[in-house]
Computed example of a mutant assay.
Amino acid sequence: MPEGHSIHRIARQFARHFENAPVAVSSPQGRFAAGAAQLDGHEIVDAFAVGKQMFLQFDHQLLLRVHLGLYGAWDFAGDITVDATTFSANGRMGQTNQRGTDLAGYEDSPWSMGAPRRARLRMSEQEKLEAPVDGDWPPEPVGQVRVRLLTPTAVADLRGPTVCEVDTPEQAQAQIDKLGPDPQVGDPVANEERFVAGVRKRNVAIALLLMDQAVVSGIGNVYRAELLFRARQNPFTPGRELPEEVVRALWHDWVHLMSIGVETGQMLTMDDLSPEDLARAMASRDDRHWVYHRTGLPCRVCGTPIAMQELGGRKLYWCPVDQA
C-alpha cells in the first residue's frame, strides 16, 4: 500500500498540471459515472493530501476524495514534469544527495526531465516513468479506469482505489478530522502534541499505534518497522509505558523520514551510508532498509536474525536483540 509520502507526491502532480483549468471528468469503467458528472467541466483549485488520502477541490466546492488502498494507482500522461531530483534516465527512482554524497554516475543517479514533455508516469507505492506517449491525443484508457481527469495537455487515470467519491467540504473535513497528525499538514507543534498524547494514553503496542491512522497519518508497514528499529524500540511495548522523550523522538524521526520521502520518492531509511552501500541501496530495494522484509537475515547492527510475525493483520519485522 502506498505510504503517506507517495500521496503527497501525487497531490503535487495534480497541483502542478491540473489546477486552474477546466477538467473533463469521466468514468471509462462506468462505476463512477454519477460522481464524474458532478465534477465534469469544473476547475481544480486545490490538490492536497492528509495521510493516505488525497483531495482534489473543484471550483464549485465539491471535492474528489481518493484512497488508493492496496491496489490503487494513478497513471499520468501528457506534457508532465517529473520531479527533477528523483528520476534516472531508465525511468527508475533515484535518491538525492545524502549528507553530501555525490550520486552522479550511479545507475539510479538523479536525472532531470527538464521542461514538460509528452510522457507517461505511474504513481502508487512505487513511481515508474514509462515510454513517451505516441499517437493521437488523448490516449485511450487502458484497463479498468475508475475515473479519468483530462485537460488539453495532461491526463490522469485512476485504477483500483479503495475509495473514490465526491464529498462536500463538510464531508471531506469530517474525514480529515478522523485522521491523526500528518507532518506535512498543519502546525508542527500542535501535530507533535497530538501524536504524543495519542500514543501515551493507549495501552496498545506501539507497533499497532503507528499503523493506526487515527493516531498518526501516513505510516505504513515499511515506515513502521524502520521507525521502531531506528529508535531501538521494542515494538510490543504499550504506548502508555513509553517515556515521553521516546515518543517525541519517534515523531521527530517520522517528520524527518516523511520529508525525505516526499522530496525524493524513496523510502530510504538508512542514514550515513558509504558510497558503496548507497550504490547497493539504489540498485535494490532490499538494501534500503534496516529490518523491513529481512526475515531471517542477520541484523545489520548485531547480526541476530531478523524476526517477523503477524500483528494487526500485517507483517511486523524487528531485531530481537537491538529492540529487546
Rank of each mutant, 00 (worst) to 15 (best):
P183L: 01
L227V: 05
Q175K: 13
R202Y: 00
P188D: 08
I176S: 10
V163H: 15
S217N: 04
L208T: 15
R232L: 07
T168M: 02
F229E: 09
V189H: 12
L227S: 09
P181R: 03
G186S: 06
I219E: 08
Q171D: 13
Q213W: 03
A214M: 07
D177T: 08
F195N: 02
E170K: 14
D177P: 08
R224Y: 11
A225G: 06
V196C: 12
Q184L: 09
S217Y: 01
E226W: 11
P169I: 07
I206G: 02
A172T: 09
S217T: 05
G186M: 02
A231M: 09
I219Q: 04
N191R: 00
I206W: 01
L227K: 04
P181K: 02
I219F: 11
E193I: 00
A205S: 11
L210Y: 04
E226H: 05
E193R: 00
V215G: 05
K178I: 15
A225P: 05
M211G: 06
R232S: 04
V216L: 06
V222A: 09
A190C: 05
V215T: 15
T168A: 03
A205W: 04
Q171G: 02
V185G: 01
L227R: 10
D187M: 12
A172R: 12
R202P: 00
L227Q: 12
M211R: 14
G180S: 06
D177M: 04
A190G: 04
L209H: 00
N191L: 00
L208W: 04
L210S: 07
E193M: 00
E226F: 11
K201M: 12
V222P: 05
A225N: 13
Y223R: 03
R232V: 02
Q184W: 07
G218W: 14
G220P: 06
Q175G: 11
D182T: 05
P183F: 01
V216M: 06
R202N: 01
A231L: 05
G180K: 00
C164W: 04
A225T: 11
V199C: 01
A174K: 08
Q184E: 13
E192L: 05
E226D: 09
V196K: 02
E226M: 10
A172S: 08
E193Q: 14
D167Q: 11
A225C: 10
N221K: 14
V189I: 14
G180M: 00
A205L: 07
R232G: 03
R230F: 05
I206T: 06
A190Q: 04
V215A: 03
L228S: 08
E165S: 07
L228E: 09
Q175L: 15
C164E: 15
L209C: 00
L208P: 02
G220N: 09
D212M: 10
V163M: 14
P181Y: 00
E193K: 00
A197F: 12
E170I: 10
L227D: 04
D187F: 14
V185S: 08
A172Y: 05
K178R: 15
E165F: 00
Q213Y: 07
I176A: 12
A205Q: 15
N191Y: 01
D212N: 13
L179A: 11
Q173C: 06
Y223L: 12
D212H: 10
F195C: 02
T168C: 03
D212A: 12
